Amino acid sequence: MRVLVAPDKFAGTLTAVEAAEAIAAGWRRHAPGDELDLAPMSDGGPGFVDVLHATLGGELLVSTVSGPHGEDVPATVLVAGETAYVESAQACGRHLAAEGDPELATTVGVGQLLLAALATGATTVVVGLGGSGTNDGGAGLLHALGATADAGRLDAGPAGFGDLGAVDLAPARERIGQVRLVAASDVDNPLTGLFGATKTYGPQKGIAEERHLEVDGWLERLAAATDRRTSLQKGAGAAGGLGHALLCLGAVREPGIALVAEAVGLAERARAADLVVTGEGAFDFSSRSGKVPYGVAEVAAEALRPCVALAGQVLVGSREMRALGVESAYALVDLVGEQQAFEDPVGSLEALGRRVARTWSRE
């Protein structure tokens, strides 16, 4: 039996690569004769570069960039052929921004990482968006690429926009030149407003609800100083507005999960399999919003292959599960308990993989 193992990360415990290996190890304990094809996945957020490197190979170039509060952080650029891939969370992820004021957090480091990608000579640069701890509309990125403002600051988080004047994007656009820029994200929020970056994602970045109106007003000022029409486009609010900055520089937006699926040849690999296994930390109905399990299940359905999911928690019923294209879903907490799942995520996921193999393998 051929099994395609294509999970996302289990946030806070396992990377997608580690999760795929743990599921496979558990599966082999029950069915050592099955042929397992590991395809760890990402939607553009944390783990994006590692997932692509695991499948595409290529060269990883290490760089040191500025974190959201000015500290030096390591980050990598993946160069595969004529395409360079960068992961914005490596420079401005929530894990880096947790200890500072979110109204001062900046994306300068993402711009520096983009410059490192441009320096490779790649003809296409793909920026994975997701998991950011910033909410500066991508102003820091624009600053790093040479954009200037006649008042206010682009490199001090949204709090720097209070007196923001006109922004000259020409130097940043010149740095991009003829390179094709791709924003990999499934988020379709605009930059500002009721469904914008601040209102929708601000709380998970530590922006207090009573501050939403003022912070959103700062982003409105940025939109007026750069390109208001672009700020209203779908995806402009991705990663705290990094989508807006990239769109201002001429980027095209592509769904992250679809981009990764194409890059790793997921459709062909699903057709060659008898069963597709996916997973993530929490499997709930929001998984339909561009998350990996839903994307993998769609690919499995197109290949006419059943898809099952393994997760830390399963928070949907059987009807909702099937609406997401998943035949069955299995939870770590149901098998080993919440404490054990966090204390030993690898062993717990191996045990769950073995249990699922008992149900689905032909051995």
Rank of each mutant, 00 (worst) to 15 (best):
N189R: 07
P190A: 03
P190Q: 06
T192Q: 02
G193I: 05
F195N: 13
G196Y: 06
K199C: 13
T200K: 11
T200P: 05
T200V: 15
Y201L: 08
G206E: 04
G206C: 04
G206N: 02
I207D: 06
E210Q: 14
R211P: 05
R211V: 03
L213P: 11
E214C: 10
V215D: 07
W218K: 12
L219A: 11
R221D: 04
L222T: 07
L222W: 08
A223Y: 10
A223Q: 11
A223M: 09
A224Q: 14
A224D: 15
T226Q: 03
R228I: 12
R228Q: 15
T230I: 15
S231W: 02
Q233H: 14
K234Y: 06
G235F: 01
G237R: 00
A239L: 02
A239D: 00
A239N: 01
G241Q: 01
G241H: 03
G241L: 02
L242N: 00
L242C: 00
G243P: 01
H244M: 04
A245V: 02
L246A: 05
L247H: 04
C248P: 04
C248Y: 00
R253H: 06
E254T: 14
G256F: 01
G256C: 03
I257H: 00
A258P: 11
L259T: 02
L259K: 00
V260W: 01
A263V: 05
A267R: 14
E268P: 10
A270T: 06
R271T: 13
A272V: 10
A273N: 06
L275W: 04
V276F: 10
T278R: 07
T278Y: 05
G279K: 06
G279Y: 06
S286Q: 15
S287C: 12
G290E: 06
K291E: 02
